[in-house]
Design a protein around this nucleic acid. Sequence first.
DNA 1: TGTCTTACCTATAACTAATAGGTATGGGCC
DNA 2: GGCCCATACCTATTAGTTATAGGTAAGACA
Lengths: 111, 111
Amino acid sequence: MAKTNAAFMSGVPELLILRLLSREEMYGYQLVRAIRIVSGEALDLAEGVVYPVLHSLEQRGLLKAKEKVFDGRNRIYYAVTAKGRKRLQELTNDWQRIQQGISNVLGEHHG
Amino acid sequence: MAKTNAAFMSGVPELLILRLLSREEMYGYQLVRAIRIVSGEALDLAEGVVYPVLHSLEQRGLLKAKEKVFDGRNRIYYAVTAKGRKRLQELTNDWQRIQQGISNVLGEHHG
DNA sequence: TGTCTTACCTATAACTAATAGGTATGGGCC
DNA sequence: GGCCCATACCTATTAGTTATAGGTAAGACA
């Protein structure tokens, strides 16, 4: 039931995941729900999107994984590394710039 | 000298081009400069990005091309069709929703 | 037993922006 | 004339990701 996105999504999963994990460590399945809820139902990333991004971020040293057993169930918690925080800052800056640029174009009143 | 973008650009060229052309018809080379200027230097799309998008939009019936000779030089002006305006509206809505969703996530104060 | 939710995973497809070229004309400069 | 820059168009290839569509397995609950 994740069928939100047409365009405008490049880089977004990475940004959102880094941002949410920078506040508190979470596991993948939890992230999927958090993105939907915190975005105000505007965004809904499928697990098939979130897990590969988590693996990629971990491999690049931006996240650190920690396996925990909860209620007999396996969970893999992810926390942002120092390198990850730097990356988050960069991505946030890029986002702000691009978002502003698009607003500038859209905001122009019709002539 | 167009080297702006890292991420967050999917769907953006199409949106910007439709929006700018909805105000007045323009030709490709002019669009390239307009995007840079109107966005406040935040965005800079290379010709290699803009021309293929124009062709795609025309093929899909969202733009209509009109060749004009100016100063002995050939220019191809593009205007938005009715179908194109509808598409622009949809894209704008998508953009607003996604942009809002991302703001919601980013804006959360650290806990 | 059967179904739902939780929790993880991956392979493939689909999309599209970015790169890196290329062609051709006109104007200005020496 | 020869040179360079700006204008104005173009395309093939690469790169990078998201989206799709699956699959596995355990626990809860009826």
